[in-house]
């Protein structure tokens, strides 16, 4: 019964492969984590508190923003607003994986989403566009990124002086370059290019004129609207609805 309701089977071997596939990028995440650990202790967090935050929140940009608001007191509503705004892109990322996630039982579905972050999502979303279903990268890749983020934070709080200026080594650009490479590796149909142009213009407009940290969601939804109104006939992608997994069980 269950097998036909939830046809997606996570393959342990593939989870392991994806863990090691994202290991190189995770080494750079260690450097970011170290920068965060240093920033957090400078703002008065205890080492263990910084490590705890990295382990439970696991969302770098919002953690940097949060410790930026740190003082002897922290205003709760602004903190919630900033963390939500920066992380709201997760809403879109999770939604975009739903056609695959719905084939997993709810427990596993939300278990995987605990590890959802930019890099592993970018790989999974890009492969989905080329007709490959890869949730293993969310689990395996997410795990290695999560561990790297914790180890990095740990290094930063205890040995922060080792990496005073990650920017001088270009390390702040790792994620940007990674996401760009993922985007350019995907399909580039005229429709995609129009959507990208719309996304680029609206995210820039939002960045300039709308409240801070709203630009990702604004740009992504504007780009998505192009897809909503401009359907593309792709005969080769019509059989990607997961039929083969059902057949094999």
């Amino acid at each position: 019964m269950n097998a036909s309701t939830y046809p997606y089977r996570l393959q342990p071997d593939k989870v392991r492969v994806e863990f090691f596939r994202l290991l190189p990028i995770s080494l750079f995440v260690v450097a970011f984590g170290a920068a965060f650990g240093l920033a957090a202790t400078q703002k008065g967090l205890e080492p263990l508190q910084a490590i705890l935050m990295s382990a439970t929140v696991f969302a770098g940009a919002s953690q940097f923003a949060a410790v930026d608001m740190w003082g002897s007191e922290v205003s709760l509503i602004p903190l919630i607003a900033v963390v939500f705004a920066i992380n709201s892109r997760h809403l879109l990322m999770g939604a975009s994986l739903y056609p695959m996630l719905r084939d997993l039982p709810p427990g596993r579905r939300y278990g995987l989403l605990l590890l959802l972050t930019d890099a592993n999502w970018a790989v999974s979303a890009q492969e989905y566009q080329s007709g490959r279903r890869n949730l293993e990268v969310i689990l395996g890749g997410g795990l290695v990124l999560w561990l790297a983020w914790i180890v990095g934070t740990w290094l930063g709080v205890y040995f922060g002086g080792l990496l005073q200026d990650p920017k001088s080594l270009g390390l702040d650009m790792v994620l940007g370059c990674f996401l760009l490479a993922m985007a350019l590796g995907g399909s580039k149909s005229p429709r995609t290019l129009v959507a990208w142009t719309v996304a680029a213009v609206s995210s820039l407009a939002a960045w300039k004129w709308l409240p801070p940290n709203t630009h990702v969601v604004v740009g992504a939804l504007a780009g998505g609207a192009i897809g909503f109104f401009w359907l593309e006939k792709k005969p080769d992608s019509e059989n990607e609805d997961g039929g083969e997994e059902v057949g094999s069980t």
């Binding site: 995609t192 820039l204 630009h215 998505g224």
Partner: peptide
């Protein structure tokens, strides 16, 4: 999830990347 929603999701997904990178 119909073809229109699927198309929205796919275009939105790659637009997330662009919307992160361009302002950066």
């Amino acid at each position: 999830i119909n073809p229109r929603i699927e198309s929205f999701i796919n275009t939105m997904a790659s637009s997330v990347l662009i919307a992160i990178i361009v302002p950066m």
